[in-house]
Design a protein around this nucleic acid. Structure first.
Length: 527
RNA sequence: GGCCCGGUGGUCAAGCGGUUAAGACACGGCCCUUUCAAGGCUGUAACACGGGUUCGAUUCCCGUCCGGGUCACCA
């Protein structure tokens, strides 16, 4: 049972240990990517272990949510909990199902005198806490405050006979006046006081605390690297002592930084309640591509990743050597701007088909009406998404699905609306005249060059410069330049000042739609 | 409050005793351009503070300040 694993030298075994609260957040994903890379690039194993020792927090169906959310973002496990049951031979992988294992070790520790039952009630515990507060001593159950640490066998037996509920505590041998140092995979050498807290190992219901459970599991499952948030740093002394008490070597601890956010000029931890962007659903709902989220998180995760990516665009992630010592140890601010920038690059590198499939997949789940409209004109949609794609300098207009839809929705009459104003340096009279003449001269058969020459001619006919340079040289001589004329056409056709190439969008719209919209533009200018 | 971790431009960050203190995002300017985007060039902007150690500190040590974490029969 639980033999050492036969893996190549240097292989790392990592695990993600979410508790099944049904809420999986960016921090989990951040850690999961690191765990995944560490394991897989070393030929190791990546495990999913469900840390369900707190039944109060458990939410129905949470395991499934965890697995599917992570799967969506490309995190796959080699071993561990699956929706129904387990995969792998170091299980079970749900801690509640491992109760007997923990209890066995707890018994062993009690036999050896390294742990003891404690019958303190909640009221007694809070009395201790208050007394400590009054005396300004450290809080906790330790040393002279640990009332039940030295109960005689008889006293224990009496209480047991009464059926008194009890927990099992570690009989700590540490002395906080002594310091020990430990190598953290991310932070280097850490110096901490020894633990002297008689921490709870087994709760009254016989289920272990996180502290006890993870030590046993990580040892038995032959975990080599424990990646976890820095909120665990302060409990590290317990954990080290528990490993030591059990006579086991501890894995390499790697404490990651917490994700922060800027709020009213102050940094603070991303909070589940206040920050929707902490939840993974936020990104999925908005339609950030999983590859973009991964790419972004990787840049935050490893300080040299971004540089590598710049040097190796399009290279497979396997080519990047991920290391814990390149992970940051100061609070990283979550930066949506940066995510968007990364996302633009990721989407620009994809084919129109890929973007199209992704967009439609998103729409089916989050915007069903729109998905029908787009499905009905899938060929056009593909052409729309192909505009400016590929080549040396692809356009980078697209960020996330909801935004993409916003960006292209003017193609669909169902969603077409005037979002931007006409340029105000073109008078309504000129605008109307320009649109009328444009309509009169419009020929869907014109190629891009012919079409553009016509626009230039149109500009000149109405007192606009054919080239911006001409206008710049001599602003008094013109009402504006051809760019202003284009802007008028663009607004009439797309309802906005910013769109992909005008000629191309007209080709996709088709002559009827083009004419109708120009006509509508003329009408709306009438009054 | 105790303990722990951290503090380089607005943000993310290289840097590990001697550097003109990288780079990316954001922001400004210019060029290109029928708009926007992209691209090219370019600009503004940083070592929290005070003491040491040292020939020399952003880098090492101490203190202060600031930020964060943690002090549960939650993880």
């Amino acid at each position: 049972m639980y033999p050492p694993r036969s893996l190549p030298a240097g292989a790392k075994v990592t695990r993600l240990g979410p508790s099944p609260t049904g809420f999986i957040h960016l921090g989990n994903l951040y850690g999961a990517f690191a765990d995944e890379r560490l394991a897989h690039q070393s030929g190791g194993v990546f495990i999913l272990r469900i840390e369900d020792t707190d039944n109060k927090r458990e939410v129905e169906g949470a395991v499934e949510t965890i697995i599917s959310s992570l799967d969506y973002f490309g995190v796959h496990f080699d071993e561990g909990a699956v929706v129904e049951g387990d995969k792998g031979s170091y299980g079970p992988y749900r801690q509640r199902q491992r109760a007997e294992i923990y209890q066995t070790f707890a018994k062993l520790l009690i036999q050896r005198g390294q742990a003891y039952p404690c019958f303190c009630t909640e009221a007694e515990l809070s009395e201790i806490h208050e007394a400590q507060a009054a005396l300004k001593e450290n809080f906790g159950y330790y040393g002279k405050w640990a009332k039940h640490r030295d109960l005689s066998l008889q006293e224990i037996r009496d209480r047991l006979d009464l059926g008194a509920p009890f927990v099992v505590r570690l009989r700590s041998q540490g002395d906080p006046a002594r310091y020990f140092s430990i190598e953290d995979g991310i932070r280097g050498t850490l110096s901490m006081p020894e633990n002297n807290q008689d921490v709870v190992l087994l709760k009254a219901d016989g289920i272990p605390t996180y502290h006890f459970a993870h030590v046993i599991d990580d040892h038995l499952m032959r975990i080599t690297h424990i990646l976890r948030g820095e909120e665990w740093l302060s409990t590290l002394p317990f954990h080290v002592e528990i490993f030591k008490t059990l006579g086991w070597e501890h894995p390499v601890f790697c404490h990651t930084t917490v994700l922060m956010k800027m709020d009213d000029g102050a940094k603070r931890k991303l909070s589940k309640r206040k920050d929707p962007e902490l939840g993974l659903d936020y990104y999925r709902g908005l339609g950030y591509h999983p590859a973009a989220v991964r790419e972004y998180l990787l840049t935050v995760l490893n300080s040299n990743y971004e540089e590598w990516r710049l040097a190796n665009p399009g290279a497979d992630i396997e080519g990047f050597r991920f290391t814990t010592d390149k992970m940051g140890s100061s609070g990283a601010l979550f930066d949506l701007d940066k995510l968007s920038d990364v996302s633009k690059d990721v989407l620009a590198a994809m084919t129109a088909e890929e973007v199209c499939d992704f967009l439609l997949g998103w729409a089916r789940a989050y915007k069903p009406e729109a998905s029908e409209v787009m499905d009905a004109r899938r060929d056009d949609l593909l052409k729309i998404l192909a505009i400016g794609r590929g080549g040396e300098n692809p356009r980078k207009d697209l960020i996330y699905a909801a935004q993409i839809f916003e960006f292209i929705q003017f193609f669909f009459d169902e969603y077409f609306r005037m979002e931007d104003e006409y340029p105000d340096n073109v008078s309504p009279e000129d605008r109307k005249a320009l649109l009328k003449d444009y309509l009169a001269g419009y020929d869907a058969g014109d190629d891009a060059q012919v079409w553009f020459d016509k626009v230039r001619q149109l500009a000149m006919d109405h007192g606009f410069a054919a080239k911006p340079k001409d206008y710049k040289k001599n602003p008094e001589a013109f009402k504006g330049h051809v760019g202003d004329v284009s802007a008028v056409l663009r607004v009439a056709l797309s309802g906005r000042r910013n769109s992909p190439d005008l000629w191309e969008i007209q080709q996709i719209m088709g002559p009827d739609r083009v004419k109708a919209r120009i006509q509508a533009g003329i009408q709306s200018t009438a009054q």
